[in-house]
Design a protein around this nucleic acid. Structure first.
Length: 692
DNA sequence: CTGTTGAAATTTTTT
DNA sequence: ATTTCAACAG
């Protein structure tokens, strides 16, 4: 078999448009891929095909939305290459490829490149990276220093300040414009914000730290540097971008700089699935791609391989109601299946109960827990369900929401390492100094000034006078950080030393020290997986493991667990059975985003993304009553409405049931009496909680 | 200045 | 429920 035939064989599983995309030449390529149309397979085959064509793997840059996605794709590329290799066996055609494909998120790749080329634009090689909380903390410090906190009218919260700043950078827009368009209630603070952002930028520079936005900004700047820029352009012969609909202007410009004429550029996306405009992503990137690169070839993938016909019918109906017209018409050859279920629940506990019962039924029928997922709009929507799963010993894994690395104790430990890595990192330093008794904001600030003044030499702290309360612990503290700064011992040993110092403090500072302490033991375990401290710090802030379980390593294969995920984190994934919960107005769409038509439209696409994750069974649930937990006089029920994204024509694609109807045959018009009975049942159940 | 206490305000999505 | 802010005691 010759090379050509071998490639044909490997590509034989693809449909004609997919093949066209895979074998497309050097010109700019836009792949518009509807949900479940084999987008990943196409991208994977294209990478493999390029390598088979002789493009060095090290010359291929694959930009994905998460690192998990990158890892998964590269794994599959290897698989395709192996198949190709097997098909060519005996003809000696295939050369083993030494270097690896560059794969990762924009942020992760930026970090790697900045470590390598950063000097060219005056970036200190030992820079550390601030995650969102760190950046907020930093802004907070500066806000206080500037006296912006004590004004008569309330200044925007630090999180809002960061959002505003971030949008300016990512959308490449003037502050005034951003305020007018997205934060009209903060308009009056324009001057103060200018002041704040000015100082923020300077202080980041002084501290040698980069925030998320800086990673993109600096990469962008680096590309304008004659030497580093052309080195990168030369290196990345081919650039492939996944989820292009969720990139922002800055990212699009980075791509433009990497390949001004679009040569070697491939982007894949679906305008109907753009859900990250809050991060300044704009669907214009995908629409305007052919305008920016006039030579663009567009390939549209419309054949859906994921979902059964009834599910597809429902999802097409939902997206068909969008204000903007989307050009694709997804179709499928897949067999008929069950009509998706629209489940009206009495209250939240009925919803949880229904979901769990169905999950277990499916598992009985041979669908493992890991092939099922519960999706929701906001992280806290799953709380009651989680409690119930724990109670029933059903293992689950939650994606999205508060991350393991965002917990205070993990942040504390990481801050030790970060200060050792970069003694100028003011946020890290302030954080760990504040852990010591008697040390507050002022003293910490003073100590950090001292440290920076001495060029980052921790010897300066040896002579410094600690407050009385910290007198005893101070020498130990200084010895620890000084030792870390010298990088004494391997990484796990370093973490171990921090733990020994930090453990006693943990008990003082936080409520439940034991599980926290165990988390840190875990962290010590996995420290050995990283090449060095800087890599560990960067990777953990850029790709936070979503739970301790995640940190512990790849899950054991025969371990089965249910997936709970925010809809955002479910992007790109699929399951046999999908349960979308809290599908009521106010949740989907979220009350926060119904202020503008664009916001509402994005929520519609979000709902669409959730529904299109399902392969065989789809459940949409909504509780009619919900419990209002924050009117202090408690015990108030509110009444919900079904999400506005399922008006009558769309709802017809669903089989409607109520959660209390034990089997589906008893659906449709519920007798009024039964409904009342169920209501009182759930009220009684709730009442009992007062004494049980 | 630090650490604590009480009152008030605020609840999305994430690299 | 949690976070943030102001006021006060040590």
């Amino acid at each position: 078999m010759d090379d050509h035939a071998a490639i044909d064989e490997v590509l034989s599983a693809l449909n004609p448009p997919q093949r066209e995309a895979v074998q497309h030449g050097e010109g700019p390529l836009l792949i518009v891929a509807g949900a479940g149309t084999g987008k990943t397979a196409t991208l994977v085959h294209r990478v493999a095909w390029l390598i088979a064509q002789g493009v060095g793997p090290g010359r291929i840059l694959l930009l994905t939305f998460t690192r998990r996605a990158a890892a998964e794709m590269l794994r599959r590329v290897d698989g395709v290459l192996r198949k190709l290799h097997a098909a060519q066996a005996g003809h000696g055609g295939f050369r083993s490829t030494g270097t690896r494909v560059w794969g990762g998120t924009f942020h992760a790749i930026a970090t790697r490149l900045l470590r390598r080329y950063g000097k060219a634009i005056g970036l200190a090689p030992g820079f550390t990276i601030h995650d969102r909380t760190d950046s907020e903390d930093f802004l907070n410090v500066i806000r206080t220093e500037l006296g912006l906190a004590k004004t008569d009218r309330r200044f925007p919260k630090k999180g809002t300040c960061l959002d505003i700043y971030s949008r300016c950078v990512n959308a490449r827009q003037q502050l005034a414009e951003v305020l007018a368009l997205h934060f009209p209630w903060c308009k009056e603070w324009e001057d103060e914000l200018k002041q704040l952002f000015d100082a923020y930028v300077d202080r980041k520079e002084a501290a040698s730290v980069l925030d998320y936005d800086d990673l993109l900004l600096y990469w962008h700047a680096l590309l304008s540097d004659p030497q580093a820029g052309s080195a990168m352009r030369k290196q990345f012969e081919r650039v492939l971008v996944d989820e292009y609909q969720d990139t922002n202007i800055l990212q699009a410009e980075i791509l433009y700089q990497l390949s001004p004429d679009g040569k070697g550029l491939t982007v894949v996306g679906d305008d109907a699935q753009s859900i990250y405009s809050f991060r300044a992503a704009t669907v214009r990137n995908i629409f305007d791609f052919p305008k920016h690169y006039p030579e663009t070839t567009i390939v549209t993938l419309e054949q859906n391989y994921r979902s059964t016909q009834p599910i597809l019918k429902a999802t097409n109906e939902v997206i068909g109601l969008a204000a903007e017209r989307f050009t694709k018409n997804l179709w499928s050859e897949r067999a008929e299946g069950d009509r998706p279920l629209l489940v009206t629940c009495e209250a939240e506990d009925d919803q949880a109960e229904f979901v769990i019962r169905r999950i277990l039924e499916h598992r009985e029928a041979g669908i493992d827990l890991r092939r099922q997922a519960v999706l929701f709009r906001a992280s806290h929507h799953s709380m009651l369900l989680e409690a119930e799963l724990v109670r029933r010993n059903i293992p689950f894994h939650k994606y999205g929401g508060l991350k393991f690395v965002e917990t205070a104790h993990v942040k504390d430990l990481m801050a030790f390492l970060r200060l050792a890595e970069n003694p100028r990192d003011l946020v890290a330093g302030t954080r760990i100094l504040g852990l010591l008794p008697g040390v507050g904001a002022q003293k910490a600030r003073q100590m950090m000034d001292l440290l920076t003044g001495s060029g980052g030499d921790f010897a300066a702290w040896k002579q410094a006078k600690p407050p009385k309360a910290a007198a005893e612990i101070w020498p130990k503290f200084v010895a620890l950080v000084a030792g870390l700064a010298q990088a004494e011992g391997d990484l796990p040993a370093q973490v171990h030393r921090v733990r020994k110092f930090y453990d006693p403090l943990l008990a003082e500072l936080y409520d439940n020290p034991h599980p926290r302490s165990r988390d840190l033991e875990q962290l010590e375990q996995i420290a050995s997986r990283y090449r060095d401290r800087a890599t560990m710090l960067a990777e953990i802030t850029l790709d936070p493991p979503s739970s301790t379980q995640d940190l512990a390593g790849p899950p054991i294969l025969d371990e089965d667990y249910l997936v709970l995920s925010t809809i955002h984190s479910a992007k790109g994934l699929e399951w046999d059975s999908v349960y979308v919960i809290h599908a009521s107005d106010g949740n989907i769409p979220s009350d926060m985003s119904t202020g503008s038509p664009e916001g509402t439209e994005e929520e519609r696409r979000l709902f669409y993304v959730a529904l299109t994750r399902a392969k065989r069974w789809l459940y949409v649930l909504w509780p009619m009553r919900y419990y209002q937990s924050w009117g202090s006089f408690s015990d108030r029920y509110g009444f919900a409405q079904l999400t506005r994204f399922l008006p009558e024509p769309a709802a017809k694609c669903f089989h409607r049931v109520t959660s209390t109807a034990l089997d589906e045959d008893a659906d449709r018009d519920e007798p009024e009496g039964l409904r009342a009975q169920c209501t009182s049942r759930s009220i009684r159940k709730r009442t009992k909680r007062y004494w049980s």
